[in-house]
Amino acid sequence: MQAIGICRFSYPGDGGFQVEHDSLKARMDYLYAPARMDERFATFETMMLPPLRAQTDDDFTLAVVIGDSLPDQYRDRLEALLADMPQAVILPRAPGPHRKVMQDATNSVRRFDDAPCLQFRMDDDDAVACNYIEKLRQAARDVAPMAARHRHIAIDFNQGYIVQPGPDGLLAAPTQAPYAAAALALMIRHDLPLSVMNFAHMKVGRKMPTVTFTGEDMMLRGHNAYNDSRQKPGIKQPDFAPLDAAAKAHFKKVFNVDAGSVAAAFAALPSTAR
């Protein structure tokens, strides 16, 4: 079964944001603001990429969708970061309807063979465990009889941490919540040209059968000022605590995320990015 992760790296689509902007230019100005881009690269480099580089099953595709308007200095930096990662494909796209663009981008790297396609989304400040692809394929084999009777099935690994990166490293709060974007995958029937991005992750339980796996840390969900889902009032704040030595070792072992590298990346940011 082909496994595809899709990352929207500051793609200025029409839709796909909970916070709206008055115009495409306003959205681009927001997305490409230097302070925001500095922080997105910091989380992309120190949180999202390290566990993907260390997957116990490295047979997957990472589709990184960018706007064709992404400024050259950011595109060059992104290309340099991914140059030694054979799974990564950068897909520049013009602004357009978010779900259609993401669906077309996903299908451009999809094999469309006789097997279901496993698809997961990767926000640039999230992370999955180093054995995520291995566990996902194992889960897909477990639910294969069910998949034969349905168009798509959600496979949800619901345990991990909400993390807040900064110049002191990581603050973390344990979480065990259904249908978070990180570590949630869809198993899509082989002949359906749909994408994981066709569905709001919190609502997949209304659209398809879901299977939840718990009891093992499988995800890190980034928490920062630029999170789209945290821009509205009344959002509950996690009960964060600094990582102690044991937690730092756990994060390194399970996620290949080094708290010291996170701290160094954020300490190096211009003060306007913090």
Rank of each mutant, 00 (worst) to 15 (best):
D228T: 04
A246Q: 12
V196K: 02
G222D: 00
V211H: 11
H201Y: 11
R221Y: 05
A245Y: 01
R221T: 11
R206T: 14
K248S: 08
F251T: 00
K252Y: 11
G205F: 07
A263I: 13
N227D: 12
H223P: 00
A245P: 03
Q231P: 02
K252V: 03
S229V: 08
P238V: 01
Q231M: 12
P242T: 08
K207W: 12
A225S: 12
D217G: 13
K236D: 03
Y226I: 04
R230E: 04
K248C: 07
D228W: 13
Q237S: 05
L220N: 01
F213I: 14
S229R: 12
S229I: 09
G215Q: 14
K207C: 11
A200P: 04
D239R: 00
Y226W: 13
D258G: 09
K203P: 00
M202R: 09
A264P: 07
T212C: 14
L194H: 09
L243V: 01
R230K: 08
L194F: 07
F255I: 01
K232F: 09
D244P: 02
T210W: 11
A249T: 11
G234E: 01
K248I: 00
D217F: 13
S229D: 15
V262H: 08
V254E: 14
M218K: 10
S195Q: 04
K232W: 07
V262Y: 09
M208V: 08
M208K: 04
P193L: 06
G215H: 13
K232R: 12
A263Y: 11
L243A: 04
Y226V: 03
M219E: 02
G215I: 14
P193D: 05
A241Y: 00
D228P: 01
M202P: 00
D258C: 10
T212M: 15
